[in-house]
Write a protein that binds this DNA or RNA. Structure first.
Lengths: 196, 196, 196, 196
DNA sequence: CATGAATGAGTTTTCATTCAT
DNA sequence: GATGAATGAAAACTCATTCAT
C-alpha cells in the first residue's frame, strides 16, 4: 500500500484545478492562489511541483491535449474492433467529434484560450501544431478508406478540421438562438460525406 | 490648416498603437505605458481619452471591426456597380476574403486574441456576435442569388464563415510547410461553389 | 459700466464651489476639476486666480471665517442699537449662535474639516486661532456686562465656546434620535446664565 | 517561546505605525508605504494583513477606541474597589479624564482627524457614535449617584462630554500662551460639581 | 482671460516568487 | 512535503500643474 499519494496525482489535481479556473477567468487573470484554492492545496506547493506559473500552463496544455488524444484513441480502438470503414466510419467519427469535442462548451472555451496563448507563445504553438497534425492525419486516413485519393483526402480532412474548430469557436461566441450549431454541423458533414 | 488635431485622430493614434502592440503581446501583457510608448504620447493621456484600460480595448475592437466592415462594404459597392451575381459573385467574394481577411496574418492573430477576450467578456462577445451575424447574412444573400433557397443558403453561409475562421486560426497556429493554406482554402471553396 | 466681472467675484464663485464640494467630500478627495465643475468654470482658470490647490483652501477658510464674522458683527450692531445688556444680551447671543452657527449642520461639517486641516497646518491654525480668540473675547465682554469680573468672564466665555464647538461636533457625529441637541444646548446655556 | 509572532501582534505593529504617522500627517496624506516604513515592514505586507487602505483605518480607529475604553474601564474598576461615590467620584473622574484623555495632545490630534473622517464616512461615524454614547452613559451614571435625577444627569453628562471634546480641540488649535487649558477645564468642572 | 491637451510624479493594489519554520 | 509570512516588481489610475493656442 502506498504511504503517500503519487506526486503525479497531486500534479493532476493542480492541473484539474486550473481547468476549473479557466471556466471562469482567462489564464492571465487566474492567480496561483486561485488555482491552489480550487485544488485545495497551499499555494507555495505549486512552486514545488512546477517551476513557475508558465510551467503550470505548459503542462496543463499538454495534459488537456493528451486527455483528448486518449479519448480519440479509445474511440478509434472501439471502431477498429468493429471493423467499420468507409463512409460509415467517417459518419460515426463526426458523431463522436460533435458530442465529445466540438460542442463540448467547456472544452471549446478552454481551447479558445489556448489558441490565444499559442498565438504568442512558440512552445505552446508547437504542442498544438502536433496535435492538429495528428488529428488531421487520422481523419485523412479514415477518409482515404472511402476515396483512395490520399492528397484529396488530406485536403478534405484539413478543411474539415478547420471547419470543426470554427464551429467550436462559434459555439462559444454566438448564441444558440441565432445559430443552430448542431444543424449547421451535421448539415455540412453530410455534404462532405456525400462528396466522398 | 487646423491648429489642433482632431481629438478623434489622437484616439485613433492610440488605437493603432494598441494594434501594433497586439502583434507582439496579448492584451493582458500589454501595459498602458506600452501602448503610450508606441503611440508616442504620455501614458497619462490614455486616461484622458479613455475611461480605463478596458475602454481602450472595447473601442479598439469596435474600431477594428468597423475597419473591416468598411473594407467589405467598399468591395460590395464595387461589385454591385459591375452587376455581377450568382456563382461568379461568390467566387470573387472568396478571393477578396482570402487575401484581405482570412490570410491576413496580422489581422488573424489579433482576432484570435479578440476571440479569447470575448469568451470571457460578454460585452466584447456582443460586439463580435453582431459582426459575425452581419457577415454570415451578407454571404447568405450572395449565395441566395445562386440558389434561391434562403434556409440552405444561410446554413451554407454559416458553415463557410466557420470554415474561414478555422482557416484563419490555422494560418497562425500551423506552419505553412505542413499546410498549404491557400490550396485548402480555394479547394474547399471550389466545392462549395459547385454544390450551389 | 464695468466691462468685465470683478475678478473678486469669480474668486468668490470658486470659493463657494469649494464650499459646495465640502458638503460631499473632504478637501483631499475634492479635485481641482470637481471645484471647477461646480463653479462652472474651466479648471485651468483656478490656477490663474489661485497659486495652487492649497491657496484655494487657505483663501476659502479666510472667506468662511470672514463670512461668519460679518454675520456676528451684523448681529452685534443690531443689538447695540437696541441698547440691550446683561443677561438678556447673553441670552439673545446664545439664541443667535445656536440657530446660525452651532446647529447649522452644513457649517459644522465644514468646520470639522477645517479643524482637521488646522491640526496639521500651522498657517490655517493661525487663522483659526485668531477667530476663536475674537469670538471668546466678544462673548467675554458680553458676560462682563453682567458680572464685572473680567477674569471670570473670560474663563466662562472660553469654556462656553469650547462647549459650543463640542456641540457642533456632536450635531454631525451623533444622531438626533439619541441626542436632543437643542435641549442639551439650551439647558446648559440656561445654567451658565444663572451662574452669572 | 513561540517561534512565530502572533499575527495579531504584527497587525498591532502596523496600527501603531499608523498612529505614529498621524502625529505628522493626516490619513489622506499618509501613504501605505509611509506606514510600512514606520512599522519596519514591507509595504506589500500591509495588503496581506488588511484588505485595503480603508480597512487599516477602520481597524485603527476601533483599536484606538478600544484602547481608551480599556483605560477607562481599568480606572472604573480601581474606583469601584475603593467604593467612592457622589461628588468625589465625579471629581476624580474629571481628574482622570483631563490628564489621560482631554489634555493628551497626541490623542486629541488623532481624534480631530477621526472626527473629520467620520463626518464623511458613515461606518466610522457609527463606531464613534457608540463610543460617545457609552462615555456619556458612564458619566451620567456617576452623576446620578450624586443627583438621583437620571434625566438631568444625562443632559449634564452630554453637555460635559461636549465641553471636554471642545477643550480637546482647543488644546490642539489654540496656543497655551493665550489659553490656560487646565484652568478653564478645572474651573468649569468645579462649577458642574457645585451644581450637582 | 479661457480652454483643454499634455505631463509626470505619486498612490494603491496585485501577485509571482522565495524561504524559514 | 507543507505552510504562510515576507518581498519587491510592476500595473492601473489620479491629479495638480503647465502651457500653447
Amino acid at each position: 500500500m502506498p504511504r503517500k499519494k503519487n506526486p503525479e496525482e497531486k500534479k493532476i489535481q493542480i492541473l484539474e484545478a486550473l481547468n476549473q479556473c479557466l471556466h471562469e477567468k482567462p489564464f492571465d487573470k487566474t492567480s496561483i492562489k486561485d488555482i491552489a484554492r480550487v485544488a485545495g492545496v497551499n499555494h507555495g506547493l505549486l512552486h514545488y511541483y512546477f517551476k513557475n506559473k508558465e510551467d503550470i500552463l505548459t503542462q496543463y496544455i499538454e495534459y488537456v491535449i493528451d486527455h483528448y488524444k486518449s479519448l480519440f484513441n479509445d474511440w478509434m480502438i472501439s471502431q477498429q474492433t468493429q471493423n467499420i470503414g468507409g463512409k460509415k466510419l467517417v459518419e460515426d467519427f463526426f458523431g463522436f467529434m460533435n458530442t465529445r469535442i466540438t460542442l463540448n462548451k467547456k472544452l471549446s472555451k478552454v481551447f479558445i484560450e489556448i489558441w490565444a496563448i499559442a498565438a504568442y507563445n512558440a512552445d505552446i504553438r508547437t504542442i498544438l501544431q502536433q496535435a492538429y497534425q495528428e488529428w488531421i492525419s487520422a481523419l485523412s486516413e479514415m477518409l482515404n478508406t472511402a476515396t483512395n485519393d490520399p492528397a484529396a483526402a488530406w485536403k478534405t480532412s484539413a478543411a474539415t478540421v478547420a471547419f470543426l474548430e470554427g464551429m467550436a469557436l462559434f459555439s462559444i461566441i454566438l448564441t444558440p438562438d441565432t445559430f443552430d450549431f448542431n444543424q449547421v454541423l451535421t448539415g455540412f458533414q453530410k455534404k462532405i460525406i456525400e462528396t466522398l
